[in-house]
C-alpha cells in the first residue's frame, strides 16, 4: 500500500527534525587536518621558491628587488587550497590553517607578502647544502619554474587579435630543461 509509504516518509521527517546548522551564528570548527588558508612563517622561510614553482594555480610569486632582498607574494584570490606548497616546503614554513572564512571586499586582506633577506649560504648556514641532493635541485627535477611579479596575471584577459609574433613567442615559451641527476 502506497499510503504506508507516505506514513513512513512522515515518520522519517519528523524523527530527524531540523538538521540545518545555525552556522554563521554558531561557529562550526573545521576538523583536524583541514586545508584552509595557508600561512607563511617568515622566520622559517628560506626563499627557495619551492612553493612558487610547484603551485598548480600559480598563486605564489617571487621577485628579487635587489641582490639581498627577495619578496614572496601569495595572492589568495585564485588559490585552490590544495596544500601542495605546505607539502613541499623543505623548512615546513607553510601551514594549512583551519581558517576558511575568507570572503572579503579587499584583495589585500587575503594577500600575504614576505620580505626575505637573502644571503649566500656561507653566511646564513641554514639555506641548503651544496651537494647534489639539495632541495633546490630536487625541486628543479620536479619542474622548477621562476615566476616574476611582473607577469602576475597568468591568465591573460584578452589577446586582442591573432598575431603572428604572439604565436612565435609562445612557441619558445617554456620552462628550463630538467636537470640530469
Amino acid at each position: 500500500m502506497w499510503i504506508w509509504n507516505k506514513i513512513k516518509q512522515l515518520a522519517i521527517s519528523s524523527r530527524t527534525g531540523v538538521v540545518t546548522l545555525r552556522y554563521p551564528f554558531k561557529p562550526r570548527p573545521a576538523p583536524a587536518g583541514f586545508r584552509g588558508q595557508p600561512v607563511w612563517d617568515h622566520t622559517k622561510c628560506i626563499g627557495c621558491a619551492g612553493c612558487a614553482s610547484n603551485c598548480p594555480a600559480r598563486t605564489i610569486f617571487l621577485r628579487d628587488i635587489c641582490q639581498e632582498i627577495r619578496i614572496l607574494l601569495y595572492d589568495s584570490s585564485r588559490c585552490t587550497y590544495c596544500g601542495r606548497c605546505a607539502d613541499l616546503c623543505p623548512e615546513k614554513a607553510i601551514t594549512m590553517s583551519d581558517n576558511f572564512e575568507l570572503a572579503t571586499d579587499s584583495r589585500q586582506d587575503i594577500t600575504q607578502t614576505i620580505e626575505l633577506f637573502m644571503m649566500t649560504c656561507q653566511r646564513c648556514g641554514r639555506c641548503y647544502d651544496l651537494e647534489i641532493k639539495n632541495y633546490l635541485d630536487k625541486l628543479q627535477s620536479l619542474g622548477y619554474r621562476y615566476d616574476s611579479l611582473e607577469v602576475r596575471k597568468v591568465i591573460r584577459q584578452s589577446t586582442a587579435e591573432f598575431e603572428t609574433d604572439l604565436l612565435e613567442k609562445t612557441a619558445t615559451y617554456g620552462r628550463p630543461e630538467k636537470l640530469e641527476k
Binding site: I155, R156, Q157, S158, T159, A160, E161, F162, L166, L167, T170, A171, Y173
Partner: peptide, 18 residues
C-alpha cells in the same frame, strides 16, 4: 574564427579572439 584550430601547437593556450 574559421581556420584557427586550438589544439594545434602554434596556437597559444590563452588565445582569445575578439
Amino acid at each position: 574564427p574559421e581556420g584557427i584550430y586550438p589544439l594545434r601547437q602554434e596556437v597559444p593556450y590563452d588565445l582569445m579572439p575578439p
